[in-house]
Nucleic acid binder design. Structure first.
Length: 260
DNA sequence: ATGTCGTAACGTTTACGA
């Protein structure tokens, strides 16, 4: 089972590039972030024509997540538990029925949190605590669980080309990194680091200041696996080349394969 | 020179979020 995560930065803007990548990469499941569309306007037919089931959780203008799956989906749930007041569309989960095993798949768009300190940073940290609580609950199922998306977290200095430039940024502040590690510490495995060590691996390059041409990137899109999912992990890669194409997102896809 | 995008709206330009 191939599961990909891709922050597309607007479905309208990616209406050509996204299907082109899907046709090449052929993920069984694609978790999308920043669809920037209400559910009614999401162009589901483009994906249904390719054999995908489409589940969206959108809002007007910003945020928004979606699951595309060629495998059957069950028990779709929208919104991260823990705050009924939270209007932001950043979380969707569903059970993917694999040939051998069912996998609980969660797609997430974690708040950016800048500027820090401030109310946006407080929201980010509170959201991460809700994420930890949900992760704890999912662990209890003792089933394969995958939580993937744009975490807006640079886990370590080696995950940025210029770590000093991010020192005071919400993506890299010690409190942000600690909140991310708290989720790892309850028993989740970061798939990319389970298979690849060392610096120079990025999933995001800013549109500004020629960041792509200078390879001035950061690694902020991640797959976290429960122990039962980590047992099934066979690969994890970043589709870096996508960033050099016409009208790219500022993020590139990251994907895993599971023996499921 | 905060240098780029994408989206929305009291829109042919500005504000906001990233």
């Amino acid at each position: 089972m191939k599961i990909a995560s891709f922050n597309i930065n607007g479905i309208k803007a990616r209406i050509e590039a996204l299907p082109a990548w899907l046709d090449e990469a052929e993920p069984d499941v694609a978790l999308l972030q920043e669809i920037k569309s209400v559910d009614e306007n999401f162009p589901r037919e483009i994906f249904e024509d390719r054999g995908y089931n489409v589940e969206t959780h959108g809002q007007k203008g910003f945020n928004g997540v979606a699951i595309l799956s060629k495998l059957p989906l069950e028990d779709v749930s929208r919104g991260l538990p823990g705050d009924p007041e939270d209007e932001q569309a950043r979380w969707i989960e569903a059970t993917v029925m694999g040939d051998k095993t069912a996998v609980r798949v969660c797609g997430l768009y974690l708040p950016n949190g800048n500027p820090a300190p401030g109310p946006k940073y407080d929201y980010k940290l509170a959201w991460m605590e809700r994420l930890r609580a949900r992760a704890q609950g999912l662990l209890a199922s003792e089933e394969p669980v995958v939580m993937a998306g744009d975490y807006n977290i640079i886990p370590q200095d080696e995950d940025a080309a210029r770590p000093e430039a991010w020192r005071k940024d919400a993506l890299a502040l010690p409190e942000s990194r600690a909140a991310f590690r708290r989720i790892l510490n309850i028993g989740f495995t970061e798939a990319f680091r389970a298979r690849t060590q060392g610096p120079g691996h990025y999933t995001f390059w800013d549109y500004q200041a020629g960041a792509w041409n200078k390879n001035d990137g950061i690694r902020i899109d991640h797959f976290l696996l429960s122990p039962q999912a980590a047992d099934l992990l066979t690969d994890c890669q970043i589709d870096k080349d996508i960033r050099a194409r016409e009208k790219p997102s500022d993020h590139v896809p990251i994907w895993i394969t599971l023996d499921a």
